[in-house]
């Protein structure tokens, strides 16, 4: 879509990243010495049991939380706090209820200083991309959960970030909407060449969408593992290789 194809931007390097929270005064380590390279344009899924720190890792990448030690480099540059090179899609759509669908999608463009007319045009394109052109003028309270989340996705894509960070974006949706949204995300990512980090607790979702899966260990002593999903797209959930990946992952979690 953009000129990023030959520049290959959006490369992330995580170096010796550690983070702990304080629980009643005692430090509770969440992330311990994480090292990882995320390739330009790839989709990396992060899975792990609850409490494994996958959301924390995403929030550190987003700049919403500071690490205790270590650093995050984007295209070789150390990040400091939030930045417009990254866009976050949260589990809740987090739409501004007083803005229409179109203005919500244009929100990020406007805060980043785009002129109103140009922002509207681009916002309109992304509203179309997620298939909500009929609802441009609707307010968030008139939308279903799945539609609202599409607006959140369009808002994030509209700023054309180098890195897209998703924190269990489909976790609150019903099973049917979830599958259709997964298909749609796969379609969108085929066209938008953007580095994507997807935190999810849904193993099938991870296999369906990701190039690689990072598995955060449940025990604090364990090592994080990386799995390459080399399946062609669009992926078939019932293909033997797909099923094999799922069984492998379940096995890793001790669920088989």
């Amino acid at each position: 879509m953009s000129a990023s194809q030959n520049l290959r931007r959006g490369e992330v390097a995580i170096r010796h990243l550690s983070k702990s929270y304080r629980l009643n005064g005692t430090p509770l380590p969440v992330l311990r010495d994480i090292n990882l390279n995320i390739r330009s344009g790839e989709t990396l899924a992060i899975v792990g049991a609850s409490g494994s720190g996958k959301t924390t890792l995403l929030r550190v990448l987003a700049g919403l939380e500071d690490p205790d030690a270590g650093e995050v480099l984007i295209d070789g540059k150390r990040t400091r706090g939030v930045g417009t090179d990254r866009a976050v899609i949260f589990q809740e759509p987090r739409l501004l209820p007083w803005l229409t669908v179109l203005d919500n999608v244009g929100f990020g463009l406007e805060t980043q200083g785009l002129f109103r007319g140009a922002a509207r045009e681009r916002a309109r394109r992304y509203v179309q991309l997620v298939g909500l052109q009929q609802f441009e003028g609707a307010y968030p309270r008139q939308l279903s959960g799945g539609m609202a989340q599409r607006v959140g996705i369009a808002r994030a894509l509209a700023v054309q970030p180098e890195i897209l960070l998703l924190d269990e974006p489909l976790g609150a949706l019903d099973a049917m909407t979830k599958i259709s949204m997964q298909q749609e995300l796969a379609r969108i990512w085929r066209d938008e060449d953007v580095t994507t980090v997807l935190v999810t607790h849904d193993l099938e979702e991870a296999i369906y969408l990701a190039d690689r899966i990072l598995i955060l260990p449940r025990e604090k002593g364990g090592e994080p593992r990386l799995i390459e999903i080399g399946l062609p797209r669009p992926r078939d959930r019932s293909a033997p290789e797909f099923v094999r990946h799922r069984e492998g992952l379940l096995h890793l979690f001790g669920l088989h």
Partner: peptide, 26 residues
Amino acid sequence: KLVEMARTYGAGPLTVFRRVVLPASV
């Protein structure tokens, strides 16, 4: 959560106030 969302899109304190806090308080 809305304030946090606005911050991730590069909104400074003044923009957060004008675009999020003020309309939400009306």
